[in-house]
Design a protein around this nucleic acid. Structure first.
Lengths: 335, 335
DNA sequence: CTGAAAGCGCTTACAG
DNA sequence: CTGAAAGCGCTTACAG
């Protein structure tokens, strides 16, 4: 019985308009039946009083809050923030609203985020990073929360899984390097063992092996620019340094590029070719002009929103393609 | 009377624990009085059933949803996403949760975002970009929404205003350039007329004028890397090109730097010095090593959270300092 | 410390 | 099309 912070309620509007509370509820519920006359009266009163439907109360009744939780780690990373921007935009266009929950990738942290989402009765939770253990998935389902997992391997019944053609991209990266004449291919990746990164690296390694040009593989640190620097240093310090490097992430590629040019004096692409993954904004900057795979960020977002819209209670899998965008760190294959 | 999506409620827990609904409510309300025995019974039952307090219902009663709306445009921009990350992190640490609302900077769009916030009865709205017209501020206040404005000039009673020492930084930038011997200073900024950008540019221009070295001023496009490219081109194509450029934003500086080196063959800092603003991650990358002003992102976030915690109904102003971080695009002043 | 009861602001069968 | 009434899941005086 605290003071209800003087927000105006449906009751106020009803009185002002001389109608019932049900009438005002109906004029704000799409598809409900109200006569044009009452509707007009209600709208006028609502406008005058500054009424806004209380979505908390509505959510309580309809069991649909309209909120979807976005669970993400390292959201200030270029790729992550781009995905976040696209996702919130599509969500809003669809009449939903995003709740942003930061995690540190630890299981405990993701669990806390999921609990948060449950407490607010969000309609769904989208896990952009971190890999919830199976028990957490059950927690969601049991609480009527729909789950979408991006780039997670393990299947979870009832959830939407979004995957990329990671392995195929890895193979394509090798193929691109082979075509321009690279003979000492390498893959550079981080030790963060996410499924997608592993798949990209494996796809590359397998293709290389099949072609009889075994790739050297280096994995250092977390996915960051700094790790890229270390990766480049490690790779180019070898007695037989690579002449083509596939980095599983753009951030890694930028570090490799900088260290290759500035510390090892390599010319790119003359002495060394580099391919990245993500197609983050910086990949298009003149300092890099990185040849890389573009993640279909808009398609990912759209798939999620449309799955959310459907009432697909069944589990689902969406496979999307990343495609290579050619810039200047690999010579165009001559045909 | 739709099926309440089988989430478990306090009533279920009460029955399972053999206590009243009030008892379970109390065990989840910090500071409420429950005996250790009942508390234990409730906790056990809650754990077993997977109970989570419904924050929608709680918010309805307490008139505090625990949600704070973050209203932001271009959130996939390096600085914006960094601020967003810091803010959500502090907010969470303080027991609140962030609702992320994307806008396109238009007044109409910000208005929609604010309405969204009101509908969900968020405790506060933090406007990271876009400049709401005065009427919108009133809308918030009238609906019991606390407002925090970052880098907005116009005062709004009841709101928290966070400002930086923008003008002083502009002056300091000029001073830094003058000390190393620049004689043809320039400011490069965008046409997005935000207060902070304007103040930075003016601070620089005034200091230059006072020193008898009038600065040339160029303003192009929106705040982006692409605009930086155009800015650099425009400035360096002049008959008397500048030897020192202060860019009101790091993004602009990266463009200027790339075009200066690659298209105009300038060596930095030998032929040209450049100073940015924000200290975004890329400023530390080897390709740039940009001397720039670091925004006190953590302090900004902390100020907001602590203001939110206090019940300061009065309006408030917090002034924070950005400080220059020296890297390699300006020679250290010799003393 | 504890429970019964009122009330937050809404939506939705149910009758008319 | 419309209103009176029930109910969503919670918290909080009020009595005990």
């Amino acid at each position: 019985m605290t003071i209800p912070r003087n927000a105006v309620s449906a009751k106020d509007v009803a009185e002002a308009a001389g109608v019932s509370r049900a009438a005002v509820s109906r004029t704000f519920t799409p598809g409900a039946s109200v006569s044009p006359t009452t509707r007009a009266k209600v709208l006028a009163a609502a406008e005058r009083l500054g009424y806004h439907v209380n979505h908390l109360a509505r959510g309580l009744i309809t069991a649909e809050s309209g909120i979807v939780a976005l669970i993400v780690a390292e959201l200030d990373t270029p790729f992550r923030s781009r995905l976040l921007a696209a996702l919130t935009e599509k969500l809003q266009a669809d009449g939903k609203v995003a709740m942003l929950i930061n995690t540190d990738r630890s299981d405990e942290s993701v669990k806390g985020a999921l609990r948060q989402a449950i407490s607010y009765r969000t309609d769904a939770a989208v896990v952009l990073s971190g890999m919830p253990d199976p028990a957490l998935g059950d927690l969601c389902i049991r609480n009527g929360l729909r789950l979408v997992l991006i780039n997670r391997e393990e299947g979870r019944p009832g959830a939407l899984h979004i995957r990329l053609n990671d392995a195929a991209c890895g193979a394509q990266a090798f193929e691109a390097l082979r075509r321009i004449g690279c003979v000492r291919p390498a893959v550079a990746t981080s030790r963060s063992a996410t499924t997608s990164l592993r798949l990209r690296a494996e796809g590359f390694a397998h293709a290389a092996e099949d072609a009889g040009l075994p790739a050297t593989r280096e994995a250092i640190g977390v996915t960051s620019y700094a790790a890229g620097l270390d990766l480049g240093t490690a790779l180019l310090s070898r007695s037989e340094p690579p002449d083509g490097i596939f980095c599983t992430t753009d951030l890694l590629a930028f570090g490799v590029l900088d260290v290759a040019r500035q510390r090892f004096g390599r010319r790119v692409p003359e002495d060394l070719s580099v391919i990245g993954f993500d197609d983050v904004a910086q990949a298009g900057w003149d300092a890099y002009r990185l040849t890389t795979f573009a993640q279909p960020v808009d398609e990912i977002s759209e798939s999620i929103v449309s799955w959310l819209d459907g009432n697909g209670a069944a589990d689902d899998l969406v496979e999307l393609d990343a495609h290579l965008v050619w810039r200047d760190t690999v010579s165009m294959p001559s045909r």
